[in-house]
């Protein structure tokens, strides 16, 4: 039997299948491109080629799009990213003390003691130092994001760049570039700046002890790994499936949940063929005027989102009970 984990993030949507021993058997990486539902359907289409519904015993979701994903796929668990990442990290490395996770719009630090999350922090509203920013800079310099890290490794010198704010960092980089510094040095400087910002901001007041796991999409960037190692003074480990850790965690959590309940809510991979559309409307029920999203599957209402009072989201739950 397999267990499905779906991590719907701001930049990427990851799907994994794990087996009974929580080993990864399948991984799919897709760009969310602002349409989480389509991304999940796309992933299901790919899974359908090799797997049958009956082989999937549970499904879990995580990421900022976990609720919408959970509704459409019928997930057994929808967990926040902190818990999901910690679960996956502990599965591969029992002695992990610190998890550094940098994703598309979030960066997090998770402190673990004796296999328990004892502290965590996330970036505040600012997205400086996250994947989106690196993505944008790679695009601006016309360097594929996959090669970004190699450039940093090539540099012998690091150019000082302000990492406090993405807007300032960008103007700083442009300034340095116009003064003639080469791309490698600037990119290395950028990695150093982002790590500095991460440690001062997200990691403020936290004692970072080894063993450190570096997870999330940004961990693919070797320059970032090196910058962390230089500033922390010890080795930082990047798990083989660093970008899939959230999804793996969600799959493990779903597996554990279904082991307890004995039944899965998973609606099957046929979802790939469904015609899913969303429409939003402004609820006129009160002055809050919530923007409610209504999801249809093949013209049947599947779920509602975004209402503060849960008048709409509860409505469907009541209907399903009756049906």
């Amino acid at each position: 039997m397999y267990y499905l984990g779906v991590d719907v993030g701001s930049v990427s949507t990851d799907l994994v299948l794990i087996n009974e021993n929580s080993n990864l058997v399948e991984k799919i990486y897709l760009r969310t491109k602002g349409n989480p539902i389509k991304a999940v359907q796309e992933g299901f289409k790919m899974l359908r080629k090799n797997y049958k519904d009956s082989e999937i015993a549970a499904a879990g979701t995580t990421g900022s799009g976990r609720l919408i994903a959970a509704t459409i796929i019928g997930a057994d668990a929808a967990k926040n990213e902190i818990t999901a990442h910690a679960t996956a990290a502990l599965e591969i490395e029992k002695d992990v003390r610190t998890i550094i996770e940098i994703g598309g719009q979030d960066s997090k630090i998770i402190i673990i003691n004796n296999g328990i999350v004892v502290d965590f922090a996330m970036n505040t509203v600012c997205a400086a130092g996250t994947g989106s920013f690196l993505d944008r800079q790679a695009e601006r310099l016309d360097i594929p994001i996959e090669e970004f890290g190699d450039y940093a490794l090539k540099a012998t010198n690091s150019v000082r760049i302000s990492g406090r704010c993405a807007v300032f960092a960008e103007s700083d980089m442009i300034h340095k570039q116009q003064m003639g510094y080469n791309h490698s040095e600037i990119i290395r400087g950028l990695c150093d700046a982002l790590v500095r910002n991460y440690l001062n901001n997200v990691g403020k007041g936290k004692t970072i002890l080894p063993k450190v796991l570096f997870q999330g999409g940004v961990a693919a960037n070797k320059g970032m790994k090196m910058a962390f190692e230089n500033q922390l003074g010890f080795e930082v480990f990047v798990p083989e499936n660093h970008s899939m850790m959230g999804a793996i965690g969600a799959a493990i959590i779903a597996k554990e949940k279904v082991k307890k309940t004995g039944i899965t809510n998973f609606r099957g991979l046929t979802l790939a063929e469904s015609n899913i559309v969303t429409r939003s409307f402004e609820c006129e029920g009160c002055a809050n005027k919530c923007e409610v999203v209504k999801i249809y599957e093949n013209n049947n209402v599947m779920g509602y989102f975004g209402d503060r009072c849960t008048k709409w989201s509860n409505r469907l739950r009541e209907n399903t009970k009756l049906a």
Binding site: S64, G65, K79, N80, E81, I82, T83, I116, V117, V118, D119, F120, M122, V125
Partner: peptide, 17 residues
């Protein structure tokens, strides 16, 4: 989404602790 993630994770953590 942002506030939900943070309080959920915090609640999870406290519960386990």
């Amino acid at each position: 989404a942002g506030i939900d993630t943070r309080i959920e994770a915090f609640a999870d953590m406290l519960e386990r602790r």
